[in-house]
Computed example of a mutant assay.
Amino acid sequence: MDRIDNKANYRSPSLVTGYDAHRRIGEDDYVNSLEVGYFIAQVRRLAGPSGSIIDMGAGTGKLSLAFARLGYAVTAFDQSDAMLERLEAKARAEGLTIAVRQGDIVADVDDAPSAPSHDVAVSSRVLMHVADPDVMIRHMAKRSRRGIVLDAPRRASPNRLLAGWRSLTGGEVYRCFDDRSLLDSVGRCGLRVIDASPLFTLPIGLHLALHRKAVSTALERALRPARGAASTLFLAAERTG
């Protein structure tokens, strides 16, 4: 896969200032509701109503906080101290306990043989930014007893055009994935895909700009027949051995 590595962008303390507001994290927003809902449903499918979760590339805690609220034991892993500080502040405000670990989710994860440390590994909107997605998926698989849940932008969608436009105009470039290649990468880690759902027929950025959950829901339902060109593939896989 192409060598794309955006970790420096997300290490900047200045980014954290407007990060949650820009992505509507913590609001009653269509995008976050759909994303978090998918991850919760698949984790429950893999691990049941309780267990331990490692959130790889946790950011300011969109998934970590959601799982902690449900009573899961959560470890938030991220390479940005500023992101983790924001996550911890939000957890304290809600009286939640989340273990945090700072490090590069590709380069700084020990690859020596060891027993899986968590029931499920999750990651949202991270695979598109890392230097080596295959290594990250392998690390997720290694740390999970039951399976993994992740998402990734699809090549078979307008996302590919947007990424190309950004590369020409100096914006942040991210990686898009071929569905089959992504499924094969997961399979090579000894995992069996149990769900692969293309979601967000309209661009995620449009939903965030609309900021109208009811409108976004109606639009997506109307365009469901075009889901084959949806922007993002959400994927869950279980351990086979």
Rank of each mutant, 00 (worst) to 15 (best):
L150Y: 06
I137Q: 01
A156K: 09
T169M: 00
M128I: 07
Q102P: 02
A89S: 14
D178G: 15
P133I: 01
R175W: 08
E88K: 11
M140C: 10
A156C: 05
L150V: 11
H118E: 08
V135F: 00
A99D: 11
R138L: 02
A89W: 04
P113V: 00
P153Y: 03
I98L: 12
G164M: 10
R125N: 09
P158Y: 11
G103Y: 06
R155F: 08
A121Q: 03
V100G: 04
G164A: 01
P116Y: 12
V149C: 10
L87H: 01
R138I: 02
A152H: 08
A156M: 07
T169E: 00
V120T: 15
I105H: 03
A107Y: 11
R166D: 10
P133F: 03
T169W: 00
G171V: 11
W165T: 13
R101G: 02
A91G: 08
D119T: 12
A91K: 09
E94D: 11
A107M: 14
L127C: 04
S117P: 01
G147R: 00
D104P: 12
V135K: 09
R146E: 10
E172G: 07
A152R: 06
P153S: 04
I105F: 06
M140S: 01
R101M: 11
R155I: 10
A163M: 15
R143V: 02
L168E: 03
D110V: 05
V126Q: 03
A115M: 13
V130C: 12
A93L: 05
M136Q: 02
D110E: 12
M128N: 10
K142G: 06
K142A: 15
A131I: 11
E94R: 04
I98T: 04
H118P: 07
V135P: 00
G95H: 10
S117M: 10
S114K: 13
D134Q: 13
A93W: 02
R155L: 13
H129F: 01
A107T: 14
C176K: 07
I105E: 04
P133K: 02
S117E: 14
V109S: 13
S123I: 07
R92W: 06
R160P: 06
S117T: 14
T97C: 09
E172V: 11
R101N: 03
E88C: 07
R166P: 08
S144E: 06
P158H: 08
T97M: 08
L162Q: 05
